[in-house]
Amino acid sequence: MIMPEAASLFFSRGRHYFVLGASSKEDKFGHKVLHWYIEQELPATPINPNATSKICGLPPADSLVSALTSFSDSQHSSISLSVVTPPDISYQEIKKAADSNKIFKIKSIWFQPGSYDDKVIDLCNSLGYSEDNKNLIYKGACILKSGVKARG
């Protein structure tokens, strides 16, 4: 179950959405999540280090740090992050973003099912992302099933 306050913050006005683990393979959740943002007419950036071409017509970043570094969207100045990677990759990417001092650009994080473990959540909590702060969504909440309702 998604806390309404966390969903409201995640979908705040002026947000740009990063999809960590976006995929060009239509059967993968990374593709489905990115495509969901496009269908909702929300600005999105795919992130995948193995992408060799556009994903859903969008140029991919090769890492969370590079996406945060090159981010420029005058109409959508803050970022919400959807994570669709395995927990070890999720941890590595978030840790690298924290180490680079770029993590502060991310205002909310939504972990899709299977993309987190206790280590990932502990890292996020240490960085100020938590259920209490209403800027962290996880515990099995899938944007594909809950996203439209969560947007309100």
Rank of each mutant, 00 (worst) to 15 (best):
N48H: 08
K32G: 03
K96L: 14
V84F: 08
R15D: 04
T85V: 05
E93S: 09
L123C: 06
V33H: 00
A150Y: 01
S82A: 13
T52F: 04
T85W: 01
T45C: 02
I55W: 13
D132L: 10
D122M: 09
Y37N: 07
Y116T: 14
G30D: 12
A22H: 01
P113D: 09
E41Y: 01
D122N: 15
S63W: 06
Y91S: 03
G152T: 11
Y129W: 04
F10E: 10
F71P: 05
K149S: 14
R15I: 14
H16R: 13
S63G: 08
T45N: 03
L58Y: 03
D99V: 00
S53E: 15
H76V: 00
F104W: 01
E131M: 04
L127C: 07
R151E: 05
V33D: 00
F111H: 10
T45Y: 05
P46V: 06
F71Q: 07
S108I: 10
D118N: 15
P49V: 10
Y17N: 10
N135K: 10
S53W: 00
S126Q: 15
Y37S: 06
G21Y: 07
S8A: 13
K139G: 00
S100H: 08
I47G: 06
A61M: 07
K54H: 03
D118M: 12
T52G: 15
K107G: 03
E41T: 14
D122P: 02
F29Q: 12
R151N: 09
S115V: 07
S70A: 11
W36N: 09
E41N: 11
T52M: 14
A150V: 01
F111G: 06
S108Y: 00
W36K: 07
K134V: 09
V83I: 15
A98C: 03
E93P: 10
V19K: 12
Q92E: 09
A97R: 12
N48S: 08
A150L: 05
S108F: 01
S8G: 12
L136N: 03
V148Y: 06
Y138D: 00
G140D: 08
C142E: 09
S90M: 07
E26F: 08
E39S: 14
L42E: 04
S82M: 10
I121F: 10
R15W: 04
Q40H: 04
L64C: 09
P59Y: 02
T85D: 13
L34S: 03
G140W: 04
P86K: 13
G128E: 11
L58P: 02
S146E: 15
E39H: 10
A67T: 03
S24G: 06
V84G: 04
D118T: 13
C142I: 09
S82N: 11
I94H: 07
S90G: 11
I103P: 02
C56N: 12
K102Q: 15
L64Y: 01
L68M: 10
I38N: 01
S78P: 00
K95M: 15
L64I: 11
Y37Q: 08
D88G: 05
S126A: 13
Y138H: 12
G30I: 02
L81E: 09
E93G: 05
I79M: 05
G57D: 05
K54D: 13
L144Y: 02
Q40A: 12
I47V: 03
S66C: 11
S115N: 11
A61R: 07
F71V: 03
N101M: 15
S63Y: 06
G14E: 10
I106G: 02
D27L: 04
Y91C: 01
N101Q: 15
G140S: 07
K145Q: 04
